[in-house]
Design a binder for these strands. Structure first.
Lengths: 343, 343
DNA sequence: TGACATCATGCAATCGATTGCAGAAGATCA
DNA sequence: TGATCTTCTGCAATCGATTGCATGATGTCA
């Protein structure tokens, strides 16, 4: 029968009810310090706390200890399906360590993001996870300058300033191009993502590498999309097709690939008969589009988990060196790629 | 030139540097109480704070004021694409009011969820948004019993115990069935969602209503899927087709509809020629599947925003009555529905 | 029995900001 | 000039838990 009085009991109330000092109650209630209290007394205190419905005030504890067990997570767009699994991974791994995630959606500009970081700092977050990093990100610089443990996820910065968990973007694109080459394609184009993001830059680099390595095609057969959206993909594809005579397209992102579907359809090109297309990310539902999209799978869930674990480690061992965890991407074969028609 | 000393300055430090008492500094730095301080003094304090790089400690302020400006948000699965827009709406509206979202992913069982709520309460959240509500949810009961302002989103409970922001699920399904009827279908089946969720129950009720109202078809031509997944949709569709001779299916959810695509394909039925299918939710990318899915659009973003606004109102006016906001769903016509073949 | 180690508990300072109350200084009016 | 009011600032208690230090109790061994 828990007491339903108006004001919730505090530590003092529990201590009084158990006939001990609040410091003893504090020790008995914290698993890490329970051994300092005699077994029977500890038992009595725990029981009393349960009976009174005592709930420890995490705010007060944080104030005293200086650790909030809160982690700020900044994503560019929560509504974007690729961030769902990342967030779930982060949340799960944080929860396992007793931390909680303070989620914020990044604003448009840099000033906006600075303000967000500032607000998170006011809440005394123990660390930050940024999924928003650009290659040379002043926001990241500010976080590091403030001495807050910070980990990047999905996108890395240019230097090795902070720890990061990313997919091997370069290798992923090599996988895609090799696959197309193995089908017999020699004229392959690339839809590049924004070049101020590590994903955009590295995947393009991977494309150039692969084309050079295989000794095929045209290294400069690429067009940069203005954003990772279907619309931008459609526009960029039109431009690519206008400039180069390609039989296959390796896109830096699934949405760009879907934009390419549209642009091809508009020109009467049938995928994969007239044009092979490879995406990147393996977003939910791309196996259901027509044709089902061949793409590069990235383990977003695991990336989120690793990022959270890395951050917790940095929080608890503040002077550790920045680390970079790179996960291996994987080719997922579906129906949007085939041998070129001329074969 | 902000001071880069090791320990961050506190209010006392600002007060000392400005030659005033900390209480005066507190008042000058808080916009709501600034008018209590003489203009020139306030200006000097603000300037000093800026110069020292002062950052208010939200933890300490919360402890003193009893308000954390933190809201707990519990979703069943962050990785599910429908929750992305809801979360963004919540986050945006909360931020506009100076609140932050503490995001947690619901565990499996009820006990798990209780523990999550307990942890959020320890952090002294000012309120809760639940996207996990079942029709008669004991977790919700616990939140209300604890006196924490709570708002449900997307799914409502059975009674009117708490405020909720939901789509008009019943009307949405009526829209779907009327659309099928208007094409000439008279034998329509329903893939129902889990019946312990308001969405599942109300959409089924809407199906029965519509069938009855139109005087067509068979009121009991429905099968309940075990979960809102493609797999469950596929299994339920097989069962439905085995039991009823229907020419159209109205699904309680887009994923169920995509499961129906599979089940139909497996039986050699071509959609929409042999079978019309309507989804529900208008998830991202369902316009790109083959055939593009006709579905019922729900404004998840707006639902999230409204839920957050409602919660903030309840936090700031604690004795307000539970309110229910119902948004209007909308039919999105694509290519998965057509006249029945026999016409 | 006395010296000393060990264990359990209490004491009180501390984290950093907020706010009701009181009092000082200055303004207003008769 | 004195009474009264207004405006501004300082004082100190408070929110609730944690923890270094001190002290008292108990046990051990010579």
């Amino acid at each position: 029968m828990t007491d339903q009085s108006r004001v919730p009991p505090n530590l003092q109330a529990v201590a009084d009810a158990a006939g001990v000092h609040r410091s003893t109650a504090s020790r008995a209630l914290n698993p890490a310090t329970r051994h300092l209290v005699a077994g029977d007394v500890a038992g009595r205190i725990v029981e009393t706390a349960r009976r009174l419905g005592y709930r420890r005030d995490a705010l007060a504890a944080s104030l005293r200890t200086g650790r909030s067990r809160l982690v700020g997570v900044i994503v560019p767009d929560i509504a974007n399906p690729v961030f769902g699994p990342i967030l779930r991974g982060i949340e799960r791994a944080l929860a396992a360590c007793g931390y909680s995630a303070l989620l914020v959606n990044a604003g448009q500009g840099e000033a906006d993001q600075m303000r967000l970081v500032e607000e998170l700092m006011e809440r005394r977050v123990d660390g930050l996870i940024l999924a928003t990093a650009r290659r040379n990100d002043p926001v990241l610089g500010a976080c590091l300058a403030a001495g807050t443990p910070t980990v990047l996820v999905n996108r890395a910065d240019e230097g090795q300033r902070a720890s990061a968990v990313v997919s091997d973007d370069r290798a992923g694109m090599v996988l895609a191009v090799r696959h197309l080459a193995s089908l017999g394609h020699t004229r392959i184009g690339h839809l590049a993502g924004p070049q101020d993001l590590s994903t955009g830059a590295l995947r393009r680099a991977g494309f150039v590498d692969a084309v050079r390595e295989l000794g095929i095609g045209i290294e400069d057969a690429w067009v940069t999309a203005s954003a990772y959206t279907r619309e931008a993909g459609e526009i960029a594809t039109s431009e690519l097709l206008a400039r180069h005579d390609v039989t296959a397209i390796a896109a830096a992102n699934d949405l760009l690939a879907l934009g390419a579907y549209r642009a091809c359809a508009a020109r009467g090109l049938v995928c994969p008969r007239d044009m092979s297309i490879v995406g990147h990310n393996d977003m939910p539902l791309v196996d259901m589009v027509e044709p089902p999209l061949t793409t590069i799978r990235i383990s977003h869930l695991r990336m989120g988990e690793e990022a959270a674990r890395l951050l917790v480690r940095e929080i608890e061992a503040p002077d550790s060196e920045p680390e970079r965890i790179v996960t291996e991407p994987e080719l997922v074969l579906r129906a949007s790629t085939a041998e070129p028609r001329s074969l």
